[in-house]
Amino acid sequence: MSSYNYIIKYIIVGDSGVGKSCLLIQFTDKRFNAGRELTIGVEFGTRFISVDDKQIKLQIWDTAGQESFRSITQSYYRGAAGALLVYDISRRESFEHISTWLADVRRHANPHTTIVLVGNKSDLDESKRQVTSEEAERFAKENGIALFLETSAKSASNVEEVFVKTAENVYEKIKSGEFTSNETSGIRLGPVQKSSLSEETQGGACC
């Protein structure tokens, strides 16, 4: 499919082992593989979705959670229109570290980036839960995070929603003019949009 209106860039960040790569693979390939290898640096996935009748190509950068890869991953924050901050609901520490990840994203991404809090592994037994959804919800509100969802990359629960709702939020910002399409905002125009809008957006669009 080459006829799309926008390319939107996402990044997925969070502690290692919270399921970032699994979320991406569930979203792009609709499969779950628990024994997946460790992400080195960054990996990349794409999928087309439609929002408000517009075709959107999501370009998703899945980053390594390892501290030692921080320098390489941070270089990908720049120009992300959406940022998924992922923690593991069964590991309290991964939630406590979210504030660090949030600060990182705010420092390296751009001010309009749609930030979404994702509590993964919701399929686990309630007895393993170490972070309540109320607490995470509150954290999201207090920190100006647009959206909070609990997901399961394993059962696919809410995975689609997380990526799509993020795109909707970004798209709202595009419509309201908060985002302009250029390299640093993480939004680029697709070929369709480009030809129809080429008069007004000179040079803003990118290959």
Partner: peptide, 23 residues
């Protein structure tokens, strides 16, 4: 996995810092 975790500290180079394939 174990090798991946230790690569940055054991065998890396600033020139290849931003290059995942070199890791």
């Amino acid at each position: 996995c174990l090798a991946a975790v230790f690569v940055p500290g054991i065998l890396s180079h600033p020139d290849d810092k931003l290059n995942p394939s070199s890791y």
